[in-house]
Structure formats: C-alpha cells, structure tokens
Simulated assay, not measured.
Amino acid sequence: MSIQLPLGDSPINGYQHHAFPLLISSLHPDFFQWFNCNYIQIYCNKDIGSGLSFNFYDFPSLKSKSPFLGEMYIPKSLIERYVNPIKFLIDSLENNHYIVTFVDEFYIPERVAYQKYHYIHDILIYGYDNTRKIFNVAGYNNKRVLGTSEVEFLNFEKAFYSTLATGDLAKWADGMHLLQLKPENSYNFDLEIFIEFIEDYLSSSDTSYRLRMYENNNNKFIYGMDTYNSIIKYLMHIEDEIDIRFFHIFYEHKKCMFSRIRFLIDELGIHFNPLILEEYFDIERNALISRNLSLKYEIIRQEQVISKIIQIIREIKCKEDHALNLLVNDLKNT
C-alpha cells in the first residue's frame, strides 16, 4: 500500500517552520483570504551581538498556525514506549495526518549533512510506500531548495532516534506534530485587521502585545520598520560570514506584500493610488537584488558588496514607508 497526501504551494520558503504548515494550508480554497491578513509583521532580536534573527511574526504562542489546520502534539519519547515509530507514522498518514518532527539529517538522503555530519532538523512526512519501504518527505535539500524526496524506513528510523540535542533545540527535538487539513473551516478577508497590522508594521509596534491576555509581554524584540536599522547595523559589523537566510526572508516579505496589493485589486476590487503598486514592484525587485548580493558576498567577501546592500536597504525603507502610508490612507477612505 502507498499514500501521498497532497501538498500545495507555500508563499514563504525561507524557514521550514513557516513553509510546512503553509504547504498544507494552501490547499484550502480560502487560503489567500486568510494569508493576506497574516504574515505582515516582521521582527528581529534587539541584541545582534550573536547575529541577527530576522523573521515573520506569526503569533508563535498560538497552537495552530492557520485556521485550516488541526494539530496534535505528541512527544516522540512517548510514542516509542508503546509502538514502533514507523508503524505510528504510517497509521497517521493513513488517517490523513501530515507529520512534522525532528530527525538527524546525517541519515536523510539529498541533505547537505547526509553521511557527513550529524544535524538535527525538522522534516515534513507526507506519504509512504510499503512495498518500497520508503517515506515521502519534504525539506531543504542539498541544493538549498525546499523540495521533496524519499527516505528508506531503515534510514528514517535511525534519523528518528538519533536526535540528542542541546540548548534551545533540545526542547523541540522530541516533538512530533500531526497536522490535518480542515476543509470545513472557512475564513473571509478582514480589511480592518489588515489595516491594523500594516499600521503595526509602520509604527514598529510590538504585535505580541495583542496576546497579553494569554501571556505576559516581555518586549524582547524589534518590530516592523525599525528592523531596517537592525539590518543595517548587522551589515556594518560583518567581519567575515554573512547569514543569507534573513535576506531571503526580507525578500519574501516584500514579495508577499506586493502580492497582497495585487490581491486587493484583483480579488477584492479595491482601487487606490497606482503609485503604491509601482513602488512595491520596485521594492520587491530591489529586495531580490539585495538577496542576490548577499549570495555574491558569501562567495567573494568584498566590502563594496556590503556597501551596495546597505544602500539598497535604505532606499527600500524610504519607498516602503511612503507606499504603505499611501495604502493605509487610501484604504481608510475607501
């Protein structure tokens, strides 16, 4: 017997913890109604002495990452006491559950770490073939691209058990998330919350403040437009290696923002100053250039490349501030 649960297209691939739930959620017909009200805010750490942690803000305290997903969390160590994990994973897939868990990529083919070094990382399991004894999995491959591949049961079992981790990763490595698409749920685009999140971004407001009824606010991060200053500060203090991941997230944010504006026009029939769309076209293009320059710097390590990136980032900041203020003003007067 074999099963392959369907996967959609994720608008965000910079980090797997975004991509995996979005790959499933995007199968829902209301996906873009919901997505375009979310993944607007950006945040980063205040102290960049140990590097810049730059990411989409997605209400991390909330259990389910979208209204279209049912989610169960089960510790791997608990499963191991009662049943062989391979059987549990197969049974879960047969019940239309995708599985996100952590494995040692030393045992996962088509990964950078495969047969080279031990590396604990998350993985999405979306199918299996009992005749061939393989799982269908998704994740970043050895070409640094989010893709699908196969892994034999035997190798997967080794990867599953070999997940001793330290530090912050230790609290996640024992995790197993079972995700199931909920086609019966629905979501309609909410213009009011869309405007509120744009205003949060423009004013660099702490969006986690909205969850203070759920947990205390600790104000550890920088939000929205203020993250530009952190990016520039990070770039001005680079001595050797550059972290290209956040440049990709930066680019994906601008790409998603441009797509949102197209959504407002094409799907909702909202009309506003055409300059907004023109400016965001330039913003997305320049964000891609900055991402590509970060890849170039990774190869040639020349300071003038960093200077060029800083110049582009400053230009994008000015254009985005102008475009979003125009957008909010037009939407409020719609």
Rank of each mutant, 00 (worst) to 15 (best):
82 Y>D: 08
83 V>N: 07
84 N>C: 04
85 P>E: 05
85 P>I: 00
85 P>M: 10
87 K>P: 00
88 F>A: 06
88 F>E: 02
89 L>E: 04
89 L>T: 01
90 I>M: 14
90 I>N: 15
92 S>V: 14
92 S>Y: 07
95 N>E: 15
95 N>Q: 13
95 N>W: 13
97 H>I: 05
97 H>P: 07
98 Y>M: 00
99 I>Q: 07
100 V>Y: 02
101 T>M: 08
102 F>V: 06
103 V>Q: 00
104 D>Q: 09
105 E>W: 14
108 I>D: 00
111 R>K: 13
111 R>W: 13
112 V>R: 09
115 Q>K: 15
115 Q>S: 09
118 H>A: 00
118 H>Q: 01
120 I>M: 02
120 I>H: 01
122 D>Y: 05
124 L>T: 01
125 I>G: 00
126 Y>E: 02
127 G>W: 06
127 G>H: 11
129 D>W: 14
131 T>K: 15
132 R>L: 12
132 R>W: 08
134 I>V: 10
138 A>Y: 02
139 G>C: 07
139 G>P: 05
140 Y>P: 03
143 K>H: 08
144 R>V: 10
146 L>D: 04
146 L>I: 04
148 T>R: 10
149 S>Y: 15
152 E>D: 10
152 E>P: 03
154 L>F: 05
154 L>C: 06
155 N>K: 10
156 F>I: 07
156 F>P: 02
158 K>H: 11
159 A>V: 03
162 S>C: 03
163 T>E: 03
164 L>T: 12
164 L>R: 09
165 A>P: 05
165 A>C: 10
166 T>P: 03
166 T>N: 08
167 G>Y: 13
168 D>G: 12
170 A>W: 15
170 A>Y: 15
171 K>Q: 10
171 K>F: 11
171 K>N: 08
172 W>H: 13
173 A>G: 05
174 D>K: 07
175 G>P: 04
178 L>V: 01
180 Q>D: 01
181 L>W: 02
182 K>C: 06
182 K>Q: 13
183 P>T: 13
183 P>W: 01
184 E>N: 09
186 S>M: 05
186 S>A: 07
187 Y>H: 06
193 I>P: 08
194 F>C: 07
195 I>P: 03
196 E>N: 09
196 E>Q: 11
196 E>Y: 12
198 I>Q: 13
202 L>G: 09
202 L>D: 07
203 S>R: 10
205 S>Y: 01
211 L>Q: 01
213 M>L: 11
214 Y>L: 10
215 E>Y: 12
216 N>S: 11
217 N>W: 12
218 N>E: 15
219 N>P: 01
219 N>S: 10
220 K>W: 11
221 F>P: 02
225 M>R: 04
225 M>C: 06
226 D>V: 06
228 Y>I: 05
